[in-house]
Each structure stands twice: as C-alpha cells, then as structure tokens.
C-alpha cells in the first residue's frame, strides 16, 4: 500500500524548547534540496512555529505551547490557487511547492489560511515545510523536527500502516484528536492532542467557616438553561471546568445543603478565574 504521512502534535507534552524549530533551521538554512526546496533564508521564516499560550489570571494560570508546521492538508487550498502545477500533492500526501514553477506566484502565500507559507523576497518564491521529504526519500523515518523533539510531543509516521506508532495513537486516542480550524475544511494530516480551550475555575468558601476548605460542593456549568458539566470542589474548595468552547455564555451554579445557592455568569471570551465565591448559611429559625 502506498504510504500516507501524517503527524501528531501532543500539546500536553510540548514544553516549548524550540528544538523542532532549530532543527528545521539547521536542515534548511543555506541548503538547497533540488526537487524539494531551496534554502530557507537565515531569518524571517518559521516552517515549524512554536506559539506560547498563557491562559487565566493569577493565581490560576496555565502555560502551553502549540507547534505549527504545514498541515499537509488532504484538500490543500495552496494547490488549487497555483498555476502551472507549482504546488502539488505527492502520492504519500506531502504537499510540495516547486521552487522553479512557483516563481512570482505570491497568491500561493495568501491561499493558506493556516499562514504557514512564507514569501522569499530575494528569490521571489513562496516556501514552506516539506515534512523533510528529501530525507524521507533517502530512507529517514521522520523529519528533523520530530527527531529532535525531546519530549515526544511530535509523532510522525505512515497513516496507512496500522502498525505504525502514529496509527496506534490514533486508534487509542480517538476522541482526543483534533485538527486546528476544522472549519477551513482542508483536512489536515497534522492532528493535535490537547489544543488549549477555555477554562472557568474558582474557589468556594463558606462565609461562616472561612478557615476551612469548602470541599465536596456541587458546581454546575450550564449554557442556555442546559446543564453541560457537573463537578465537585476538591479538598481545597477549588473547582475547574476545562476544554470549554470560546466565546460562549455560561452560568456557574454552586449548591450546598444548608447554604443558599449562588449563580455566576461568565463569558468564555477569555479563560476565567472567578476567585473566591462566598456561600452564606441559610438562616434556620428556632422552633
């Protein structure tokens, strides 16, 4: 069976060391690979980009890094806009920009919604990540970025081979895998685990027992009247809802027997730490 190359980026593992980026620079700066690519300029292009994301507010903050190479789309829009077949997809799925034929074709840069194609002013050509096709064709098992990754955040392999590591991960991590911007409809072969979403977190405190942690309090997250998620505060009175959609209106309801319930509205345009939420005791009348 023909090979079909793909990559998985596990964002939960990446610690932002930049090795992938530098290994890529090391491979492509100053080196032409005839038939595949011409040299990447010494600065300005990021064939594999590492983006730092810091979310939340003090004291509840999360740090993650997202790595972005060319998505090697199954339905690449860059191919469609090129004339003269300057951009083409190989049988193994890798999308290549032919440096000769692509001369002067600036529209290719703008065709990619993932913004991973760079314009080389000096050579008058568009350029991007090739999945190190020149190395794969020499027998390499993976591109330089993947090889250099110390945390195994990057996994590369043949999607058509059920025994490959990548296929095994896909088989077991079902449901956890996502692509960036599925709405573009380009069917990327670079898939992600743990894309940072929005979170809403907070701490429950009983007004009458401020020194104690309010553990085991029921917290419900609902949108448009429907309860989406339910959780309980941990031993320290903290709760968290992770993996929420962006820009949505939610209501957080806190209930505990003997205390008056509380509702807080949040909009997930940012990650939100609600801070301390005080629950007051329901006054019990003496009989």
């Amino acid at each position: 069976m023909v090979k079909k190359y793909g990559m998985i980026v596990d964002i939960t593992r990446c610690n932002g060391c930049y090795n992938c980026f530098l290994a890529c620079r090391d491979e492509f700066c100053g080196n032409d690979y005839p038939g595949y690519s011409v040299a990447q300029p010494f600065s300005g292009q990021f064939w594999v980009k590492v983006i730092e994301k810091e979310r939340g507010q003090y004291p509840k903050v999360k740090v993650a890094y997202t790595v972005i190479p060319c998505m090697q789309c199954e339905k690449p829009s860059c191919v469609d806009v090129s004339s003269n077949k300057a951009v083409y997809q190989r049988l193994d799925g890798i999308v290549i920009i032919d440096p000769e034929k692509a001369k002067g074709q600036k529209q290719i840069v703008n065709a990619c919604p993932y913004r991973v194609i760079y314009w080389n002013e000096e050579k008058n050509i568009p350029q991007k990540c090739t999945f190190c096709a020149h190395l794969l064709d020499q027998g390499w098992k993976e591109p330089r970025c993947v090889e250099s990754c110390p945390t195994k955040a990057l996994v590369f392999g043949d999607l058509n081979d059920p025994d490959s590591e990548i296929s095994r991960i896909i088989a077991t991590a079902k449901g956890k895998l996502e692509v960036l911007h599925p709405e573009y409809g380009l069917m990327p072969k670079v898939q992600y685990i743990g894309i940072p979403k929005r979170f809403v977190a907070g701490e429950v405190v009983f007004r009458d027992k401020k020194d104690e942690c309010a553990a085991g309090v029921k917290v419900t997250l609902s949108s448009k009247g429907n309860a989406d998620k339910v959780t309980k505060t941990d031993n320290y009175g903290d709760f968290e809802f992770e993996g929420l959609d962006a820009d949505k209106d939610y209501t957080v309801s806190i209930e505990h027997s003997g205390y008056s319930a509380k509702k807080v509205k949040v909009k997930t345009n940012i990650d939100t730490y609600l801070g301390e939420i005080l629950l007051g005791k329901i006054a019990v009348k003496n009989k």
Binding site: C17, Y18, N19, F21, L22, A23, R25, D26, S148, P150
Partner: peptide, 24 residues
C-alpha cells in the same frame, strides 16, 4: 557542518537544545 544530540549517550539520549543546534 551539523550537530545532533548523541543517541548513544546516557545523559541526553539523543536530545539536544537550541544552543547546541545553532552551534555552527
């Protein structure tokens, strides 16, 4: 011409870092 982490070395087991990768 090029630098890589040594995969046979028990310390880093083939891994390296930006400073090493930009040695040239």
């Amino acid at each position: 011409m090029k630098v890589e982490g040594d995969e046979d070395h028990p310390w880093n087991q083939g891994r390296s870092c930006p400073r090493l990768l930009s040695l040239t």
